[in-house]
Design a protein around this nucleic acid. Sequence first.
DNA 1: CTATCCATTATGTATAGTCATAAATAGAAG
DNA 2: CTTCTATTTATGACTATACATAATGGATAG
Lengths: 231, 231
Amino acid sequence: MAEKLGFREIKREVFRRIRSNEWGPGTLLPGEVDLAAEFGCARATVNRAMQELSDDGIIERRRKGGSRVKLAPSRQVTFEIPLIRAEIEARGAEYRYELMSNAVEKAPAWLAVRLGLKASTRVRHVECLHFADRTPFQYEDRWINLNAVPRAEAADFSSLSPNEWLVSEVPYTNAEVRFSATGADAKIAKLLKTGVGEPIFLSERSTWLDETPVTNVRFYFAPAYQMIARY
Amino acid sequence: MAEKLGFREIKREVFRRIRSNEWGPGTLLPGEVDLAAEFGCARATVNRAMQELSDDGIIERRRKGGSRVKLAPSRQVTFEIPLIRAEIEARGAEYRYELMSNAVEKAPAWLAVRLGLKASTRVRHVECLHFADRTPFQYEDRWINLNAVPRAEAADFSSLSPNEWLVSEVPYTNAEVRFSATGADAKIAKLLKTGVGEPIFLSERSTWLDETPVTNVRFYFAPAYQMIARY
DNA sequence: CTATCCATTATGTATAGTCATAAATAGAAG
DNA sequence: CTTCTATTTATGACTATACATAATGGATAG
């Protein structure tokens, strides 16, 4: 073997054997000590390689049981949801932001259910539009729990979007994202300058800080939007 | 301090300080040796904690530059895209599969572009439907590069879906996923038993095995479908 | 004043050894 | 034959140490 193998090379090599069917789905892989002997490195090095293969969803590991190739290698898709501003600027377009409404209300029923709030909770409701080169790109409909984020009471969203404000001011520990397709209603059609009933990509996100609901937001994207991830 | 801190506890504690704004966005964090001294553990342990925080998108690390809290802590969303069968059965519904068409063709232009194929390449084109309790749940429109997967020439998709066949037979190294919203055309409306123009959630996936295009598939979901991720 | 070089430094990776832990298995007891 | 228990074993985690590497920032030369 020789050649000072690092954990990356080991990972690559093990993966190569898996995908070449040398080690097919369900195969019990050699133990870490055996692999370490074969590759001429320390067990910790093999361990890291195998750990990452496990994180990547290629293999499954169990103490004592050893490592085996996953039967259905359903690899995880990971992508990062960028700030709209960054996404628009990355396309070479000019970003513009427009605040539409900004009010304090009592949490509507559906929101209370979604976040686990009491119906009487005071929330800030912010609606705004994000433009790419003057074309409406995304409509943002956000609700912020004022109990969790009292600073939002006084925040000024006329020039800074609530998205950017929150992301730099309020941390969270848990989040839930839902992607779906919906038809544009009259309001959304008008805002995004499209027809009523047009298919709209909808991304809804809720976040919590240790069980405390923080915010819920719905992003309605202009027609033809695609969310792309590579891995 | 005491208490024998493991890398998980260290990770949690550092994250706690970040989210409590003790270490706000952009802050340069203490070096690994300092943290190791504070927590009373080896640098390798701190290293693993910080490594994972970096993987999670919480901090950014650079050699010599040290670690700093990300300005826009855009944490990464990771989805595990399950097999349709598993997804349907997890909902407590009965899974049924129906093959609609299965032919060998020359790659159409759009596919050649998407995957990077020569237009003359022979591909297997498979269309099928996945049902949940007899209701159409997803329409799968798949193309398989026969050069990359010659075994697909003889594969029988009448009872096993191409999705499941591929997932257990053909590995890949790179993939691209696109989520979008589209309107149901006449064909899709009929298959999914919905109206023409209804908003449909569309998931398109392309995979490669070391630069060799393997397959491209479009999943059209029945109306009201949501793709959910928690993290 | 600017461009280049180099020492410094924090992270990146590897090592050998140790102890911990979960789970499979064989063995003992009922 | 079943059930519980003890042993074994592969992975999980940690330590201390060492060297590699990239990038910074200052020193130096032009």
